[in-house]
Computed example of a mutant assay.
Amino acid sequence: MKVCTDACVLGAYADVRGQRLLDIGTGTGLLALMAAQRNSAANIDAVEIDEAAFGQAMENVAASPFADRVRVVHERIQDWTGKSANQLYDRILTNPPFYTNHLRSPDAAVNRALHTDELPFEDLIVAVNRLLQPDGQWWVLLPPYETKTLTELAGEAGLKPLRRLSLHHNARKPAFRIITGFSYGEEPLINETLDCYESDGRTYTPEFRALLRDFYLIF
């Protein structure tokens, strides 16, 4: 799977404080590795169902400076227990599949990454409720319509949005992705916006550069 700009923004923006973090559907290991870079005290479990992606994540973690703090697990999140008795996660990060009725790719791995068959939103929320600390936070990246759907389902499970970042290609374009942080608390929702590019569509905005400076070599 390719590393996408919006996933990098999630890794740089999400709150990753805490000692135990979970990356659901780690893919290449991007979010887990970014969290490890940002939080030197965290131990991170990166769960991935696809065998090829699991192997890629294992290679990437092994080649990183954070290999002693990131554990890559080949398992369905529906079956993952955390393998540590009475220890839940302080933060959970997710860049989940979201396509439901779109045309399928001939590549089964692409379908698993992009379509909700393997991980419906209902299953995802059940897993988060099972694995998240009562005072923890869950951070997720989705398109706007799917964000609305997930927020409604999460609310039924007691998870409320506390922070939301709308990503725009530039100031004249509508939001194409939304990053939402959920918790069990009642904090007032904070809404923010990030434009990736200036109006020319090529020059990164100062805000984008500042957020990704620690991760993009071109900055």
Rank of each mutant, 00 (worst) to 15 (best):
V73Y: 14
D214A: 05
L211F: 03
L131Y: 11
F176L: 03
Q19S: 15
K2I: 12
A157E: 06
L124M: 14
E75T: 06
P161H: 10
E187W: 03
L30D: 01
I92N: 01
F215T: 01
F66C: 01
R69A: 08
P144K: 08
P161V: 12
F208H: 10
D117K: 11
V47I: 08
A109T: 13
T203H: 06
S105I: 14
R130K: 14
D68Q: 12
L159Y: 09
Y197M: 07
L165C: 07
V72H: 02
V47G: 13
D68F: 02
E146K: 03
W138G: 03
P65S: 10
N129W: 05
Y184A: 10
A53T: 06
T193Q: 14
R213Y: 00
L165G: 07
P134A: 05
T193G: 13
F121E: 00
V128Q: 09
A63E: 15
R172Q: 12
S166F: 15
P143E: 15
F176I: 02
G158R: 14
G136N: 02
P174T: 06
V72D: 00
G136L: 13
V9A: 00
E152L: 09
E48S: 09
D23M: 01
T26D: 10
A53I: 08
L88G: 03
N101C: 13
E51W: 14
L211I: 06
R209Q: 02
C196F: 04
A35I: 01
Y89R: 00
N191S: 12
R112E: 02
V140S: 11
P206F: 02
T116G: 05
P174Q: 14
R91D: 06
L88H: 11
A53M: 09
C4A: 12
M58S: 08
P65R: 14
E59T: 10
E198F: 04
T94L: 06
Y204F: 13
R172T: 11
L167W: 01
K2D: 01
V128W: 05
E146A: 11
H74L: 09
N43Y: 11
D45M: 06
N170E: 07
P106V: 07
D79V: 04
L162H: 00
H168I: 05
E51F: 12
I24F: 10
C4S: 05
L159Q: 02
Q19R: 09
T5M: 11
A113N: 05
E207N: 00
E207A: 12
D15L: 12
R104V: 00
L93I: 03
T205E: 00
P134M: 13
D45T: 15
Q78D: 11
L30F: 09
T180M: 11
G25K: 04
P188K: 01
I92E: 04
L131T: 08
A32P: 08
L119T: 05
G201E: 01
N170D: 07
E192H: 07
H102M: 14
D117V: 03
G18K: 00
Y204C: 02
A46L: 08
T151Y: 03
P144W: 00
A63Q: 09
K2T: 04
N129F: 06
Q37K: 15
G25A: 05
